[in-house]
Structures are given as structure tokens and as C-alpha cells.
């Protein structure tokens, strides 16, 4: 685990995605149901960016083909409505995220270095 402070809890409003982009990584964090989730900003279906997507409870709905992913496990809940290899859509790459007592959101950067450029299909 290589936890790195990436944002402050105050920056997050409920269910609004915050995009964090830097050299070698592009990820989103979101606060929903009092839990912070971090995931790669890349849809496993087509590789499209996810930062304009919608979150309800622990479910992320991709804005492009309406595929749905579980933010806790990354698993596919609903396959995309159309497009190539719909059934081969893999899981969303999710990262461990924590909020410390001072309200800082930390994400496991070790995993970001491995997967931050997008999911491995």
C-alpha cells in the first residue's frame, strides 16, 4: 500500500465525480453513501472517459453506453446498451481509498502506477 493524499473531503459533494489527472494517471473519486470510491477514468468497454458519468448509491452508470459498474468491487452490473464486444466488457478498475481523521482522501498510488492508465483487458 502506498497511500497518497489526493484530495480533501470538502472538495467532494455527494455523488459528484472529481477527476484527478496527472502524469501517468487519470482517475475519478466520488463520495456516495458516506463512502469515498476511487476508480480509473476509463470505461472498460470502449476506453471512453468516465468523469461525466452518473453515480447513484454504489453504482456508476457510464454516460456513453449506459453500462453500470459496482463502485465497491468494479464488477459489471449491466452490460453496455450497444457497441462492440458488449459481453466482453471487463470490470472497472477501482482503487483503495481512505479518509483520515483530518478529512484527507488518500488513494493507493501503488495501484495507480499499475493501472492508472486504464484497465487491463
Amino acid at each position: 500500500m502506498k497511500l497518497e493524499k489526493v484530495a480533501c473531503l470538502e472538495e467532494l459533494s455527494d455523488r459528484k465525480l472529481l477527476r484527478l489527472k496527472g502524469p501517468g494517471y487519470d482517475l475519478c473519486i466520488v463520495l456516495t453513501d458516506n463512502k469515498v470510491h476511487a476508480f480509473a477514468n476509463r470505461c472498460p468497454h470502449t476506453g471512453a472517459r468516465l468523469h461525466a458519468s452518473r453515480v447513484r448509491h454504489n453504482v456508476l452508470t457510464c454516460s456513453h453506453h449506459l453500462a453500470q459498474f459496482d463502485l465497491c468491487s468494479g464488477s459489471v452490473l449491466t452490460f453496455p446498451m450497444e457497441g462492440l464486444d458488449v459481453e466482453k466488457t471487463g470490470p472497472l478498475v477501482v482503487f483503495d481509498a481512505e479518509v483520515d481523521a483530518d478529512g484527507w482522501v488518500s488513494v493507493d498510488l501503488g495501484e495507480i502506477e499499475l493501472y492508472g492508465r486504464g484497465p487491463v483487458r
Partner: peptide
């Protein structure tokens, strides 16, 4: 033909 869940599609329009 696509057999996509209608509730998800409707929600996407409603939002």
C-alpha cells in the same frame, strides 16, 4: 433487439 434494461435507459433521459 438489444434487450437493454429499460429503467436504466429511461433514467438516463430523465436526468
Amino acid at each position: 433487439g438489444a434487450a437493454f434494461p429499460t429503467a436504466i435507459k429511461w433514467q438516463a433521459v430523465a436526468e
